[in-house]
Design a protein around this nucleic acid. Structure first.
Lengths: 232, 232
DNA sequence: GTTTGTCTTTGCGCTAGCGCAAATAGCGGA
DNA sequence: TCCGCTATTTGCGCTAGCGCAAAGACAAAC
């Protein structure tokens, strides 16, 4: 697989980079391919590289010492991940990145990226942009988890996901490939509750479900569940 | 009240700033004083200024359209807040900042700060440092909320707070000034449960409580509650 | 001292959601 | 086609934590 500088322009953090910047980055990076279920890095590893996913799909998750884990984010093509470690020389990854399917990512040395940012304010700005986005999303999700009921959180999780990577299938419906387990971890609940909620939605015709599959038939109704005021 | 450039060095984002930078910043900023319960800014306002608290105490909170809210962070002296809006020209504050007691903050124009960062990479780096810290903290708290029981979350909230601003009192114990309501909002629970948990701790001699007051008698036991593995 | 407002406690009932266990269904390989 | 693996469903019992309501405690102001 060959990556062109122009491809990198699709990465939000590189949108203001010059062609020379991109060329330089490419020259100094390597491609890493990971099979399904494999890991790009583990929480706690020294953050030697930052990554740009060029093919496949991955997820970022955080786990506690007791082994329980939550999904922080799903990564699709041309998204950057592992970038938090890029800021400090001695940083470690605060999360684990696992490939959901066979995936390839461009690995950029953190130290080199830091050097580039020193002399290119636009790169720093774009990275800060990305970071503020994360912070806001995490703050929102935190509030949701603290104050909202499970059904709504699941609806929100699905909608957030479709906004990022939902694909229309042949019937024009939006289809997602995810396990109940993933959905549960994204929403802060259990696989059992997730399954029950989806079953209920299916009974009401909002979705169709299958093994590792959710098809949205009435996206609007989902939005309503996600947004409507509590009837209190 | 007069702020000296040297004072600003206590702000983590300014630690690598030059004396000239600090002088410039001071000249271009104004002081805003807010009485107890007043607001520096509201969620949704255009982020025209970023702030550095120079006296008092404040909290950052996020509220949903339904009015429910969570505490994101407590701000003590020489901490920066409202900085997320500093990155984009058209940003809005993603949270509300309320004074917990009569407080004063230095208000720096976001646009001016952005200009300074353009030519001073060290400032960008220090701000990114702050942002990565936030992201990591929010990710952790999110996981805690999703996977851990209330008692442990309350213990964690208290410990996090003491790490930032806990003060030893005359007896050498650590004392905090916070309402049960605040504690509940920090921990993602209700005032009732927070009250019950503290009462239980008090019965076991871990803490002493009073109106808007929590004194840690056995901090180590709290750490144990916060960290010990589930007996599963 | 009394008043007033806010903060806190506690009894009580309730339910959303957890989590085990067992059954079922779907996919891929042999 | 059958087998084995993994994902999913569902019944069932249970409990952690919610949230109302009423009573009590504290602090500041009068």
């Amino acid at each position: 697989m060959t990556i062109l500088p122009a491809d990198l322009r699709k990465v939000s953090v590189f949108q203001h980079a010059t062609d020379d910047d991109l060329k330089l980055l490419l020259e100094r990076s390597i491609l890493r391919s990971i099979e399904e279920g494999g890991f790009f890095f583990f929480q706690g590893d020294p953050a030697k590289y930052l990554y740009v996913l060029v093919a496949g799909r991955a997820k970022l998750m955080q786990s506690s010492t007791a082994g329980q884990q939550v999904n922080l984010r799903t990564i699709s093509e041309w998204q950057m991940f592992g970038a938090l470690g890029a800021v400090r020389a001695d940083a470690i990854y605060p999360a684990t990145a696992q490939a959901l399917e066979a995936s390839t990512a461009l690995a950029i040395e953190s130290a080199f990226w830091r050097e580039m940012m020193q002399t290119r304010p636009h790169l720093s700005f774009d990275l800060m942009q990305l970071m503020t986005g994360y912070i806001q999303e995490m703050q929102e999700r935190y509030r949701e988890l603290a104050t909202e009921k499970v059904e709504r959180r699941i609806a929100r999780s699905i909608l957030r996901l479709t906004a990022q990577l939902g694909l229309k299938n042949a019937d024009g419906n939006i289809e997602l490939a995810l396990t109940r387990q993933d959905l549960a971890e994204m929403s802060g609940t259990t696989i059992f509750t997730a399954s029950r909620v989806l079953a209920e939605w299916e009974r009401n015709g909002l979705v169709e479900t299958g093994r590792e599959r959710v098809v949205l038939c009435k996206p609007h109704s989902l939005v309503q569940i996600a947004e409507e005021l509590d009837e209190s």
